[in-house]
């Protein structure tokens, strides 16, 4: 007994100095990595409560800039725009992305199925700026075509932003719903059909109830992404369709004020809430 205990003690004492060094370095790295990730954000939130007129000077605690923000009609309009655009774009993207995921699931195992799968995921990796420019080009060309056909030329605005946001969000929704579908066995659909359910009945009695958390999660994700989107919006927006990120950007051009800190903090909190919600519903069984 005593021998065993002393053995353990000896083992503990024998830890190589290099091992301890490695552990120390890893711990240090972890601390700095998290600091990197969150310190700037913490500072931003902190300074949004500063009473000072300057964005980077601490002037004591105050809600001053938040009150200022809510009185700013340009910000209120931008918020309304953003919510409207995100709402419509996320609904459209959710419907199309979900149907796309269901269609892809059905093709699983067929020829080229993997390629079609990849083609849905790919846009997620395309740089925003490329997507923005290509959408702008697409809209301009379509407008010219419409003008030639109908003699009426639409302009860039809320509609184009909604279409652009829908376009990039479809991929995200499809990926989230696909993940949910992959966890659901095709056997369940077969069992339903075996019991007399037609394809439509299977869809609404079995498939949709089971993938619903994925659909909702995907929709919330699409909403969040649309709310935060800047680059693609920048290229496809027009007069009267200023979104929150665009509003922030135009305010920054006039100089960074604590009001921007406050606005950014609000956008941040909203995004965190939405993403958390999205992940929570996706995990639902």
């Amino acid at each position: 007994m005593a021998e065993a205990r002393s053995g353990v003690a000896a083992e503990g004492a024998e830890e190589a100095p290099m091992d301890r060094l490695l552990r120390g370095l890893l711990a240090l790295n972890a601390v700095s990595a998290y600091a990197f990730l969150y310190l700037p954000i913490a500072v931003l939130i902190l300074f949004s409560f500063s009473a000072s007129r300057y964005a980077s000077v601490w002037g004591g605690f105050s809600f001053r800039w938040y009150i200022h923000l809510f009185r700013d009609s340009a910000v209120r309009d931008a918020l309304a725009n953003s919510l409207f655009i995100a709402g419509l774009a996320s609904v459209l993207a959710t419907v199309m992305g979900t149907l796309l995921a269901l269609g892809l699931e059905r093709r699983r195992g067929h020829r080229h199925a993997a390629r079609w799968d990849a083609a849905v995921t790919l846009p997620i990796l395309i740089p925003d700026i490329v997507q923005g420019i290509s959408l702008l080009l697409f809209f301009v060309l379509s407008f010219s075509a419409l003008e030639r056909l109908l003699g009426w030329r639409p302009t860039l605005g809320r509609t184009t932003v909604i279409l652009a946001h829908t376009a990039f969000a479809i991929s995200y929704v499809a990926v989230v719903v696909r993940a949910r579908l992959a966890g659901m066995s095709r056997t369940l659909e077969e069992a339903a059909m075996d019991l007399g359910a037609t394809e439509w009945q299977v869809l609404h009695r079995v498939t949709l109830p089971l993938v619903w958390p994925g659909v909702l999660g995907g929709g919330l994700l699409a909403f969040t992404l649309s709310l935060d989107e800047f680059v693609i919006t920048f290229f496809t927006t027009g007069p009267g369709a200023t979104t929150l990120p665009i509003q922030v950007w135009s305010m920054v051009r006039r100089g960074v004020t604590p009001e921007i800190n406050a606005l950014s903090s609000l956008i941040l909190i909203l995004s965190i809430v939405l993403v958390t919600l999205s992940l929570a519903v996706q995990r639902k069984r």
């Binding site: 369940l188 069992a191 075996d194 079995v206 089971l210």
Partner: peptide
């Protein structure tokens, strides 16, 4: 399948 008068008991049970 939904027009056939046969039912299957799956190995995995496939309960909803």
């Amino acid at each position: 399948p939904y027009r056939r008068d046969v039912n299957m008991v799956f190995q995995s049970y496939a309960l909803f």
